[in-house]
Write a protein that binds this DNA or RNA. Structure first.
Length: 274
DNA sequence: TTAAATTCCTGTAAGC
DNA sequence: TGCTTACAGGAATTTA
């Protein structure tokens, strides 16, 4: 599923294709995928807008338009954004198609429909509770181990739960949370607020390395994730623990433990992670 | 404020 | 073979 590295890959590929382009038409085939404003207003207001910049924030894709407006895409679990020509066949579960002024199309498909499309100013979307307040960007230079320590300190929830909490840290999902804990050699069920500064430093480095490796490999395609052109990433081949419950740990050979933490499947090594 | 539980959604796979 | 059921999970929402 799309997490920070997958959305970053999409943003990097998409930027040169859409920045400077004007949206000439919107075909909204499954209107409820639009969460703000009303689908009718969305389909009416988006055409005519020019995409001036494209950014990633956490797992969100922000396409900045004129006048302070922003077109927001969140892929949920199975959302896909594809760059196509009008004559290309339409995949199943294509919920929205944007026509661009160079004759190409941006198509959004999403089997489970956990994703969402938004349109408005960032302030309005936050005020309407459609765009949550996100924690820091894990890869930003100003995000330090001390900052992570401060955000975890005093919290009683398991580390895994807080790594998944987008208001604590933006962009980490189930795959990279498990991979980061393994890399840091910390049990994901440990109360986050009791970790020593030394261990938080290790965690901080592990989170950043796990995410950067994901970006370098163009994302993990464990479920439906594909890039703009429908191609899979390579990071799923590098995963150490995610999806490997019961299989041998690559470090010590012992079977990896599968548990549920915060309602999420969590895999870790009882010997290598303490 | 924090934490835990529930909900949304459908394709896939396991079990009978 | 064909049916039922459990499971996958990001994040909003509800409850405690």
């Amino acid at each position: 599923m799309p997490e920070l590295p997958e959305v970053e890959t999409l943003a990097t590929d998409l930027r040169p294709l859409v920045v400077g382009r004007r949206v000439t038409g919107v075909d909204l085939r499954f209107p409820t995928i639009v969460r703000h404003p009303e689908p009718e207003a969305f389909a009416r207001d988006l055409p005519g807008q020019t995409i001036e910049a494209l950014e990633r924030r956490g797992k969100y894709l922000l396409l900045r338009l004129g006048g302070g407006a922003v077109f927001v895409v969140h892929l949920g679990m199975t959302g896909q954004l594809l760059h196509k020509l009008p004559e290309d066949p339409s995949r199943p579960h294509t919920h929205a198609v944007l026509d661009l002024d160079n004759g190409t199309q941006l198509r959004y498909s999403d089997v489970r429909r956990f994703g969402r499309l938004l349109l408005g100013t960032e302030e309005d979307l936050v005020a309407a509770r459609k765009l949550p307040r996100l924690g820091p960007e894990p890869l930003a230079p100003e995000f330090t181990a001390r900052e992570l320590y401060r955000r975890l300190h005093g919290r009683r929830a398991p580390l895994k739960v807080l790594l998944l909490d987008q208001s604590v840290l933006a962009g980490v999902g189930n795959i990279y949370a498990d991979e980061s804990c393994y890399r840091a050699r910390i049990r994901p069920d440990r109360p986050a607020g009791r970790l020593s500064m030394e261990r938080v430093k290790r965690l901080h480095a592990a989170v950043r390395e796990s995410l950067q490796m994901g970006i370098d490999n163009r994302g993990s395609s464990v479920d439906d994730y594909v890039d703009l052109y429908g191609a899979k990433g390579r990071q799923q081949e590098e995963l150490q623990v995610y999806g490997r419950g019961g299989k041998p740990c690559f470090n010590c050979g012992r079977p990896l433990t599968l548990v549920r933490i915060g309602g999420r499947a969590t895999v870790f090594c009882r010997r290598c992670q303490r």
